[in-house]
Structures are given as C-alpha cells and as structure tokens.
Design a protein around this nucleic acid. Structure first.
Lengths: 191, 191
DNA sequence: TCTAATACTGAACATTATGTTCGATAATAA
DNA sequence: TTATTATCGAACATAATGTTCAGTATTAGA
C-alpha cells in the first residue's frame, strides 16, 4: 500500500477517533473529520464511501485486533473449583483493554459507547463460540447453544461497560471475579 | 388536549411506526413521515422538534406503558424452590409482549431493534430496581447492586431479543424457564 | 536519476434534507 | 356565535452530502 494512502487512512482514523471521544457520532460531519485530519474532501471520499463505512472500518480494526489476539490463546481449561481459571480468556481481554490499545477505552466510555459496545459484542460472540462451542465446556442444559453464547457475550460486554462507568475502580482480577459470580453456574465443573 | 392535536400526534406516531417496521431509522426522512401521516410540514414541526424527539416520545409511550403496567403488580414473592414464581413479573412482561400491544413486537424485531431494545432496557432497569432493590430478594453477594440490576435487565432484554429472532417458537412459560436457568443462582432462596 | 503511475488538492457544483416563516383556512371549545 | 387555536402549504434559508475535474505532488520501480 502506497505510503500516502497509509498516512491518509491513519490521519482520518485518528481524527475520527478524536472527534468520537468528544462529540456524538450523529453530530460529527464529514467536514469536521476532513478538517481535523487535514486532508482534501475528495481524498476522504476516495478512501471511505460514507461516514458509516468509516465507522465500520474503524471498528473492524479496533475489535478485530483485540479479538484476534484472544483467538490465538489456548482454549479454556477449567479447574475443578467451579471457577474460570486465573488466566481465562476473559481476564486476558480485560488486561488487554486496560492497556488501552488505540484508545479503545475512551471510545467505549464516550457518549458513543452504545455503538462500540455493539461491535464489541458482535466480535466477542465469534470468540466465545470458538472457545466454548462443541467442547463440552458449557454445563449441560436444555438451553440452546446460541442462546448461551449470546448470554455470555452480552454479560461480559455489560460487565466491561459497568466497569468503565465506574472509573475502572476494580482490577481486572476483581472484575473477572464479578463476572465469574454471574456466569459460573453455566460452566461445566466436571472436566 | 384539542382533538386535532390528538389526531395529528396519533397519525404521526402511526406513520412513523409503519415506516420503522420496514426501513432503517436513518433512512427515514421527515418528509416520509409527513407524507405517510398526511399532515403539513409545519404541523409536524409544531409537534416534534426533530425526528429524534419523535423517536423518544414514541418509545416513552411504548415502554412507559408496558413497564407501568408491570409496576402495578405486587412485587416478587419467591418460592422455596429456587425458582421465580409462575406469575413472576418476567412472565407477565412476556405475556404482555405477546399480546403485541401497539405492534411493539414488529419494532423489536425490525432492523431497528437495537434502538428499541435499548429503550426497553432503560425502562426495565427502573422496574427491576423497584422489584428487587432493598427487599433482600437478591442473593447476598459481594456484587454491587447496580451491577446486578444491570445484569438482570440486559439478560432479560437479550432473552426477549433472542426469542424474537427465532420467531417466538417458545411459549412465554418456556422462555421464562430459560431465563430462570441463567438467573436463578442470583436469587435468594431463603425467603 | 528519470519516468510513468497514482494519490492528493481544493474549488465548484448538483442534490437532498432540515427547520422556519407566514398568510390563509378550518376546526374547536365555550 | 365568536375568539382561539391548529393545520395547511408554499416559499425560503441553511447546511451537509457526495461528485467532478484540472492541476500538483509523491511514490515505486526501472
């Protein structure tokens, strides 16, 4: 990819991120982004068809990265202790988030958080599916698998959301315990 | 309130609802609403400042009603059986939803469902709070109350969302059992 | 270093949606 | 009946979107 292209794309992403931290998505105009990124109008439109596509690309980059990293982790092993193990994928995600890679926390805490939490959930579901589906990790129940995967995903995302709303007072370890408390009954303790 | 005002307001709500069932919120223009409702442009703007306020008013009417009805119910009593009782507030809500009052199901199932699920959750939290807070109904735990209220609310909303995505194959009673299965561990079984 | 390809610029433009104004008309409450 | 108030609809100002194009600058590769 041409260096100019990379620089332009980067400049637009950065400008958009900066703006999203302070202003409501709907209030941000393409002109705002162009001005902040300091690129020509035509240039913006050769890179992104619309503001919505820009958002989509940004989110794919942000969450694709964080989820892909977690995908590389070994799939969950569970202690007999009825708890997720200390280095569970959830704890890993929380630590990764806390490092605040690419200022993702600012976006998840901003007034636009709903948008980003939504993308977070969507990507997380893929991860949860590969981690737990078909592996007998979930307690045997009559509940449909996709129902459970959805429940686990949204519960984790909401846990993170709650954490951010309260200024991340808890450590990732403490928060993982909160999450365990509400999730544990669903996990199989027999393997 | 003047009969004309009532009629106009009703016509706009109905038109907007019809449009929201078929089209994405962002794609619907004020002109579309005006045309479908068959009211003058100036009239629309004397009733609603913007399309966003119209949405807000509509949602308040939809969810305010369903939640207020549930608010009137006696607060939860729980069996020793570790289950929510048969006529729990959750079952009541599901039955109410299934009656499809004001076509709320069409909105919750539409491509705009995220918007409505969000309003649903916000209103539900108020209900959950009055039902469970300060009443010792929640299992004693170290988890903060607002964390639990949020978790219960989002879990119920997502359960409903999942139900709608699967064509409501389950009865409200069956779905309540699903919900119990993921929630039960949180409820105090000692009173 | 030279060159062909390609990306960026910025102004101008057409298009579309928003929200306001106002005089005329119609419906309502009392 | 009458004073009040809501609606109408056309016209208007404003603002954002997305496109076009001719000129300029940068790049990768020979």
């Amino acid at each position: 990819m041409d260096r100019r292209q990379r620089k332009t794309r980067e400049a637009i992403f950065n400008a958009f991120t900066r703006l999203l931290e302070k202003h409501a998505y709907n209030q941000i105009t393409v002109q705002d982004i162009i001005d902040d990124a300091d690129v020509g109008r035509a240039t913006f439109y050769t890179h992104f068809e619309t503001k919505e596509y820009l958002l989509k690309d940004l989110c794919e980059e942000l969450f694709g990265h964080i989820i892909d990293t977690a995908m590389g982790l070994p799939h969950g092993h569970y202690h007999y202790s009825c708890k997720l193990e200390a280095d569970s994928v959830f704890l890993h995600l929380l630590r990764h988030l806390k490092e605040n890679d690419r200022n993702i926390l600012a976006l998840l805490s901003s007034q636009n958080n709903e948008i980003f939490l939504q993308y977070f959930k969507t990507n997380l579901k893929k991860l949860i599916k590969t981690q737990f589906a078909d592996t007998g990790k979930l307690k045997q129940s009559n509940l449909p698998e996709d129902f459970l995967v959805n429940h686990i995903s949204i519960s984790f995302v909401e846990t993170v959301s709650w954490w951010l709303c309260h200024d991340m007072k808890e450590t990732p370890e403490e928060l993982t315990e909160y999450f365990e408390n509400i999730m544990t009954p669903l996990f199989n303790t027999n393997n």
